[in-house]
Design a protein around this nucleic acid. Structure first.
Lengths: 204, 204
DNA sequence: GTCTATAGACTGATAGAC
DNA sequence: GTCTATCAGTCTATAGAC
């Protein structure tokens, strides 16, 4: 009633319903967290009955896990892309950092996802690990690859990749996730410039 | 019943009781988050009756806010201290970063606090802002001061401070809060060394 | 008629508040 | 300790495909 719903009805129920339920679950879980979400509201948001939810997912925990695992892979791709960028290392880094930050800062859903993922990582440690594996690890590896370019002359590209990633993600957490824009304001460009300066200053 | 509690009883009820309730609330809220915590369990953990809880705090939300504001100022001090360190900038930075990481990584309560703070920052935006003000801002300012040392020759110390802070905090989030030690393992020393290298490499 | 998937009421437990 | 609301999860009756 509250939400939109199925345009084309029935036929090939299973896949559509699952997707529909996940969509409703995403709305609710991202907004209210795990404990704050009721299965009744998930069902309403998805436009199906509770029995339908329970026929496709084992229980609240199972639905939550499937949802977050799906979101983890989706978010990872949308933010850092699968771009095989070529060119001067300094320019690549600048471009990757700019794009990643822009993506994160303009995606409210991503802020909500970060809140839930970190907030529930105590209750669902194995889920947090899956998301680290799906999001942090591949990005860190990609950045390591870029930072390993000989002309950058970086002694520990892997650790430096963690610094770069941490600077970007923590900036997002501070400014958007925790609503700190007015408390500790800073333009994205300043962060990016300072980052690229740190990484490339001896190669100028 | 479950938890320890008041050794000395009654007399000067008010202050003791409030502290006692906050202690019980901390146990519960840090472990289960806001929505996952019941006032019954807070009362039990605090060793008082529910009526006592409600006589000292307006409601669940009020108790939660008071608790987190108190924790924010406490955590800030314990991790970055109020050390007025003197000496060579490079050495200072190395020392500050090492100590901060060590403090964070060895404090399970701090991991739990980060989870709750970030996890509830959607529901309590003004509370998140208060914590940014109390924790991020002063630390960023302190680091900015160190990074502004002329011999470091850093064009934007403020932005660089955010990078430094972000690298440290995100490392903590990845390794401890999200349980990623086994997924993306890395020694703290490598991070610290790479950080100090980035910041000081042109002044060696 | 039969069968599958569905809706919506139902249950026992537990929540916040006083 | 009481009260009302709401929770997760279940059950029953039914709607529609074949």
């Amino acid at each position: 009633m509250v939400r939109i719903k199925a345009d084309e009805v029935d036929r090939d129920n299973s896949v559509d319903k699952v997707e529909q339920i996940l969509q409703g679950a995403m709305q609710e879980f991202l907004q209210h967290g795990y404990a704050g979400t009721s299965m009744d509201r998930v069902a309403v948001a998805a436009g199906v009955s509770k029995a339908t939810v329970y026929s496709h997912f084992q229980d609240k925990e199972g639905l939550f896990k499937v949802l977050l695992e799906q979101l983890a892979s989706k978010k990872n791709i949308s933010i850092f892309g699968t771009e095989p960028i070529e060119g001067e290392p300094a320019a690549i880094l600048h471009q990757v950092a700019t794009k990643a930050l822009e993506q994160m800062l303009n995606d409210k859903e991503h802020s909500a996802f970060m809140r839930v993922l970190i907030g529930e990582s105590g209750r669902f440690p194995e889920l947090a690990q899956i998301c680290v594996q799906a999001m942090i690890k591949p990005v860190a590896e990609t950045l390591t690859h870029y930072l390993a370019a000989p002309e950058l002359n970086i002694p520990d590209p892997e650790a430096t990749a963690r610094i770069l990633l941490g600077a970007l993600v923590h900036f997002h957490i501070t400014q958007n996730v925790m609503h700190g824009q007015d408390i500790v304001p800073m333009e994205s460009d300043r962060l990016i410039d300072a980052l690229t300066h740190l990484i490339t200053k001896c190669t100028d």
